[in-house]
Amino acid sequence: MNRPPLSDHSVVSAPVSSEPLSRLIAHEIQERGGWLRFDRFMELALYAPGLGYYSGGRRVLGALPRDGSDFVTAPELTPLFGETLAHQVEQALEATGTREVWEFGAGTGALAEQLLSNLGDRIDRYTIVDLSGTLRDRQHQRLVKAQPELVHKVIWADSLPDTFEGVVVGNEVLDAMPVQLMVWDGRHWLERGVSVDASQPLGFVWEDRPAEPGARPPTDRPDDAFVPGTVTETHAQAEAFVATLAQRMTRGAAFFVDYGFPEAEYYHPQRTGGTLMCHHLHMSDPDPLIGVGHKDITTHVNFTGIALAGQEAGWEVLGYTSQGRFLSNCGLAEALAATGQASTAEELRSRAAMQMLVAEHEMGELFKVIGFVKGPWFDALGFRQGDRTHTL
């Protein structure tokens, strides 16, 4: 999602927390003895049926605050993103001998629309898996009601089948998966969770408790390398998701686009505050305990953990690089040149969007792409120059 970088300290006043959602979370905290692990809190805040940020009917995706949205993703910035990604997907379909695309967390359906348009008859089916009923409705409106010819090609699935094949696409899906929070107190690793604020029955406060024996961030750095008070995240759910996909895929490939770092950067001792961040009306703040249900909660991705999870479950890494390099390798500049804009204004908008996708100070360096394959390894187009797999 095109969210402000962590160095951006602009903050918008937080909305009031959703009372029904807060009551649900407070009840679960009480049922669990007065303390709730943060990954469960984040799961409820984002995905509680009918109440969570993604499941409660909010318009989360859009270009500007005035439309009530909180962030915008690359496919909404420009159709050049999907057109360029389609070159890699098409190569992967050919290399793996498959004819189906699976997209997880499809947002407004913009990327699906772009891939379907560019892949055409190269695919027989496009399957979307999305937990948000509101977004699924927007996707259906965009992809089927507006284009009836796609009614037999685009389907929605509530869960992953026991086996499947094809090419998986996940644009900014890993960052929204719940994480555990770890705190180093100078002697021990603690787990940060949430309890109810005694002064505000529907308010929440942080509470640290001893972590399970042996629990610590997945890094080779010694504990004494970390500054006391350091907070960071671990990503068990995202890694389990990737492992499940790898185990159930019989043949195919997968490409995940997200913001994040390899392990050595993610758990660098100078990154003392972790990467947890919230977003509301295209502004950022660091506190997920206020405005519950009305703000996005997200963290950066540990791509080393994702790579290992995929490998251990049967995938082979095709490559890992920055979004800017990946899109350049896949022909983004050539796609822009071929658009033939009708006006100078349109051309300027397209060039500005392209710069946001590839520039190092925009999305080009912060966002990364990792690719996997099950079946014969192939020289994936997007990683032919600037592959950083050795940094994972």
Results as ranks from 00 to 15, higher is better:
H87Q: 14
V169C: 03
A95E: 06
G109P: 05
D124L: 09
G170P: 09
L93H: 02
E191Y: 05
R99Q: 08
A92D: 12
I155M: 08
T84P: 13
H87I: 06
R99E: 06
L116A: 01
G166Y: 04
V72Y: 07
E207M: 03
F104G: 07
A95S: 02
T134K: 10
W102I: 09
A198P: 10
G68S: 06
S132D: 15
V196Q: 05
V179L: 09
G203L: 00
E149H: 08
P178E: 14
A176V: 15
I123F: 02
L190R: 13
Q88P: 03
G133K: 13
S117R: 13
A146V: 01
A74D: 04
S69M: 00
P148A: 02
R125V: 05
K145T: 08
T96W: 09
L115D: 03
E94Q: 14
V167W: 10
Q91E: 15
M182D: 06
L143E: 10
L160A: 08
G105D: 12
P79H: 03
F71V: 03
F164V: 09
L135R: 15
G186C: 05
V129Q: 14
D208E: 14
R122C: 07
G109Y: 04
Q88A: 06
P148R: 01
S117Q: 15
W156D: 07
M177I: 00
G120H: 04
D67I: 01
G97Q: 07
A157W: 12
W184V: 04
R192A: 04
Y126Q: 02
V144L: 15
